[in-house]
Computed example of a mutant assay.
Amino acid sequence: MKTLQNLLAIVFISVAMIACKTDKEPEVKTVESKTEINTNAAKKLDPNATYAKAEFGIEGMTCAMGCAKTIEKKIAKMDGVKSAKVDFDKELAMVEYDEAMVTPQTLEEAVAKAGETYKVKDMKTVTSFSDEKHDCEANCTKACCAAKTEDTKKMACADDCKKECCAKKA
């Protein structure tokens, strides 16, 4: 019994000596990190700037939450971009940007940086975004028309439609 007590006393003293350090200074480790804080709220947009609107198709997206949102966030974080929206169903991106800071080529590069599989097609500058679905002509090659069948392409334009394809028919 006495040996057990002596052994326990030695173990206790050893643990106490190892656990109690005489150094009172904490160990300092330096870790380098790259922080990029660039949100829409933090961005400064020039109220006197000339803003252009661009619409373009994006090929290679496989899901709305992963692909489309990733591309949308990547474009929206760019300096000079006022707004960005990527519609997965239409495979269409709509971006409003400062012409002095952003070019169509930089938008295309941002999409490419979001993922290797994404490809920009049919980029054009527009005066207003096409928010509503429109009827496709038989020879339409836009991303929103590509998946439509022959029956849906033959649909007539609405009476109040102001799209170019319908304006010619009136």
Rank of each mutant, 00 (worst) to 15 (best):
K24P: 04
E25R: 03
V28I: 12
V28S: 08
K29I: 13
K29R: 12
K29D: 11
T30K: 11
T30C: 13
V31L: 14
E32D: 15
E32G: 14
E32P: 15
E32N: 14
K34G: 15
T35A: 14
E36A: 13
I37D: 10
N38Q: 08
T39Q: 12
N40R: 10
A42Q: 14
A42M: 14
K43F: 10
K43Y: 12
L45V: 12
D46Y: 07
D46H: 09
D46V: 11
N48C: 11
A49D: 09
A49P: 13
A49G: 10
A49I: 10
T50Q: 13
Y51V: 13
Y51Q: 11
A52H: 08
A52Q: 09
A52E: 13
K53N: 10
A54E: 05
E55C: 04
E55N: 04
F56P: 08
F56K: 04
F56Q: 04
F56W: 05
G57C: 06
I58F: 01
E59A: 00
G60M: 00
G60L: 00
M61W: 01
M61H: 01
T62K: 03
T62I: 07
C63I: 02
A64S: 10
A64E: 12
A64V: 09
M65F: 09
M65A: 10
M65T: 13
G66C: 08
G66V: 05
C67G: 05
C67S: 04
A68V: 11
T70K: 02
T70C: 05
I71L: 02
I71Q: 01
I71H: 02
K74F: 00
K74W: 01
I75L: 11
I75R: 02
A76K: 05
A76N: 10
A76D: 13
K77H: 08
K77G: 09
M78A: 09
G80W: 03
G80P: 11
G80E: 09
G80N: 09
V81P: 05
K82R: 15
S83Y: 12
S83G: 13
A84W: 07
A84P: 15
A84H: 06
K85N: 12
K85F: 08
K85G: 09
D87T: 06
D87Q: 08
F88R: 04
K90I: 07
E91R: 03
L92R: 02
A93K: 01
A93D: 08
M94W: 01
E96Q: 13
Y97A: 10
Y97F: 15
A100L: 12
A100P: 11
P104A: 06
Q105V: 05
Q105E: 09
Q105R: 06
Q105T: 05
T106F: 07
T106N: 13
T106W: 05
T106G: 08
L107W: 04
E108T: 14
E108H: 04
A110L: 03
V111G: 00
A112G: 05
A112F: 00
K113Y: 04
A114E: 01
A114Q: 03
A114K: 00
E116D: 09
E116L: 01
E116P: 03
Y118F: 12
K119Y: 00
K119S: 00
K119P: 00
K119L: 00
